[in-house]
Design a protein around this nucleic acid. Sequence first.
DNA 1: AAAAAAC
Length: 525
Amino acid sequence: MASLEDRISKPQKGQTAGDAEAFNGTNSAQPTSAAGETGSWPDETSAVDTNSGPSTVEAKAEEEMSSLSRAQTDGASSEQRGTSGIYEPSYEVDVQLSDLQKDSGNPLHSIKSFEELGLDEKILQGIYQMRFTKPSKIQEKALPLLLINPPQNMIGQSQSGTGKTAAFVLNILARLDFSDSMVNKPQAMVLAPSRELARQIMGVCQVMGQALDRLKVEASIPVEKAERGKQITGQIVVGTPGTTMDLIRRRQLDATNIKILVLDEADNMLDQQGLGDQCIRVKHLLPRNVQVVLFSATFPDNVVEYATKFAPSSNTITLRHEELTVDGIKQLYLDCPTETDKYDSLIRLYGLMTIGSSIIFVRTRKTALEIERRMNEEGHTVACLTGEFDGSQRDVIIDSFRCGHSKVLIATNVLARGIDVQTVSLVINYDLPDDGRGHADPQTYLHRIGRTGRFGRVGVSISLITGPQSYQMIKEIADYFAVEMTSLPHDDWDKVETIIKKVIKSSRASADYNKAGKSAEINMG
DNA sequence: AAAAAAC
């Protein structure tokens, strides 16, 4: 925890405005590889071999590459870089007002600057501290609706890395009461699906609220026995549902003054077996008129109705699912003949590339441990994070990964959502996320690959598949998001190198005009 | 299957 406080107190320069979801100040830029920047990649024209009788795999790859390039070009013309520094594709959000809001006669307006919101000067300072200059699209639409009085519920959807966290944190900060009688009372509650995400959100609250000298942000996540029993007095409580519920029941957390409840990754919170029940129970322990705010990048059809019940009469901001994928993340897959070839391919991929940081997602804790052991035995330094470790271990592992001390992390879905480590330039799906019934889980896939390519940085995701079922799954995902997937051959590593190189090169165009531009970190080893 | 639980 000491290192957590330490980092929060020393935000560093050079953050993009989009760092809203960042655990700020943790991610010092890694040294940019000279090789990468000076074009160590072989020249595109010579690298792409088109006249040596391409195999069907090659032909397919070529075909996919060219459509990928087209998409890239088309995208570039419509993309815009606002002064916010957030790299946002042009997309349309659909804003649906509650009847409540429509009846109020307030015209829907979207703000063009944070200054228009009439926020306290100290909160504006927090915004500047985050290096925001201009609101992102979700912030521009959501903030005026969040800040309306009397408060109204909201269901908000936006792509990963577009500043959802900052939006709900601003609303919280704007509504806190620091008067003597209220200063020690919890007033806002944020719930997240993992310990790691809760800690990250805490960090954002601290950075954005650092000019508010009476602000206290507290965690409600499992702590060691010796630490238990303490009364919660922070105005903002950020935690996971189980512990939060316990704290309320034990009267260590006085919920009677809570006026805002935020569920981050709300679809996951409400959908998941067990989690959903906990969230409902927590909500029932809060005052009736609490402002309920649900945010996520995904709201699959089956949870929309549920979400609407949880946050009745909400103003909603939604996206079509074709608009959910981030152009900056290049999506590749590698078809392996057998399950055991997946491991060999993984090692080959790491032999091929040196990377900033990367996350390898697997299906089970057991696989995570196995791959960690094997890779470490073979001299690759990797770490592993799953829910089976205790809290303090998990804190050490994630903090080490955040600061770049460890660069390769093997994880289960515990880290699929929300985690923002900006140096992550590669995500590997060692196993594709599934729905437990043999089908793909497109939402989890999207959240996983969203751990890279944040804020316009270069990001690559590679999914390892084997057999017809996983081929079907990758197809389901591609169809769901209407996105191109580039196939990599399993038996021609020169070709793999060529394709990855070309993909990164096409990404670099967008990276070049990203102000931060520090993440073109994928180079051939 | 994983996650979330100081029960």
